Amino acid sequence: MLEFDPSAEIQALRTTFANIREVVDVDGVRADIARLEQEASEPGLWDDTANAQRVTSALSHRQSELARIQAVERRLDDLEVLVELANEMGDEDSVAEARKEITDLERVIGDLEVKTLLDGEYDERSAVVTIRSGAGGDDATDFAEMLMRMYLRWAERNKYPVKVMDTSYAEGAGIKSATFEIDAPYAYGVLSVEAGTHRLARISPFGSADKRQTSFAAVEVIPLMEEAQEVEIPENDIRVDVFRSSGPGGQSVNTTDSAVRLTHLPTGIVVSMQNEKSQIQNRAAAMRVLQTRLLLLQREEEAAKKKELAGNITASWGDQIRSYFLYGQQLVKDLRTGFEVGNPASVFDGDIDGLINAGIRWRKRKIED
């Protein structure tokens, strides 16, 4: 009869989970849900659409957060029953099933633990991600599209709602740029470690010489702000261009000039939106993103000034953060953390939690040092 005693592993899981519950403040989450449910039940809620969306979104986020905690709690309780059954059955299959559940719970609880490290001002917000192709011609635009798919697949794996706000297709392969919103609790805090320059090295599928090609793409991540009232933008500082939404290869997918491009003249920041049906909706969405970018730029300038006054102007984050090798060794390596994945195909299919978690832990250590 097999002897199976994972009591030490289970106790470690319960200890970590108890710490997570304390940090998350489950009672506080329940109180928030009760308050938001009361607000959501008010008869005149949808008289103010913006406020209604804020309330329902916050309620959904808090309910999801509580559901994740409760699901892990149930699995921990069920795990002990599973271990008892495995010992009663005394066969390898039952023990293997219990061991697999322990491994899965270690991963799930590890992911929850990483979330407790997200305590930045905007970390709990949803995220707006922009990807831009860099140097490398068709390889770069193709790489930008590969990165876009990677993040969208990651969101799909986690069942996070996604809205593609704007896509600029390249004349050849891939995209010049794309902006999309991931609406999930802590999406910004999680994905903010992905911001920076990504590098791809591979044998180019677009050349005839079978030579290695290096290409680059930039990833920008900003928090989604329902209202960015701290930044006022004079009308004279904005140039507004309207155009027709387009699809791959420049193909028009809209018969009216509903897409909007805002250019902030003092900074040169450009925001385009074409997802919504009307020009007014696209302009409002573009203005919200522009205000957020200007607010973050303002805060970055203030932080840089403080560092300069303190005699330390060295940036804490390098520009190039990760390399993807699709020839020879087949490897994805994060240049900040040293974390490596030997299966680039799985990474491009959205399996990036290991890379993200390593980045969050690395950033936390850098802040504490």
Rank of each mutant, 00 (worst) to 15 (best):
A178V: 15
M165W: 05
R21D: 01
V72R: 03
T56G: 03
A31D: 15
R30I: 13
D237I: 07
R35K: 15
T103Q: 13
R35C: 04
V114G: 03
N275M: 13
D5A: 10
R361V: 14
D353E: 15
L79K: 11
G110P: 11
V72Q: 05
V164E: 15
L36D: 04
Y122V: 14
A259E: 03
G196P: 06
V332Q: 00
Q63L: 08
G137A: 08
A173D: 04
V24M: 10
R244H: 12
R322L: 06
V219G: 03
L76M: 14
G90S: 02
R322H: 02
L59A: 00
T337L: 00
K115Q: 12
G110S: 08
V289K: 09
E226S: 09
G350S: 08
E340Q: 12
G311C: 03
T256W: 04
A310P: 07
S245R: 12
E220S: 12
Q329R: 01
L112A: 08
K305R: 12
V271T: 06
S245F: 03
I20A: 10
P234V: 00
Y151N: 09
V190E: 13
A52G: 12
A285W: 10
D183E: 11
L45H: 07
E113H: 11
M150W: 05
M287W: 05
V81F: 05
L290A: 02
L66G: 00
E124G: 15
A178T: 13
E301N: 15
G196I: 04
E302P: 06
Y151S: 07
A170D: 10
L118Y: 13
A201L: 07
V242N: 07
E80R: 14
K163Q: 14
L326P: 01
F243H: 10
G28H: 12
W362C: 03
Q251R: 07
L105D: 03
L335S: 07
S177M: 10
K115N: 03
D77V: 09
E65M: 14
E194C: 06
R199Q: 11
E368S: 06
A71Y: 06
R75F: 01
E106R: 15
V341L: 11
F206D: 02
M165N: 14
G338P: 04
E300K: 13
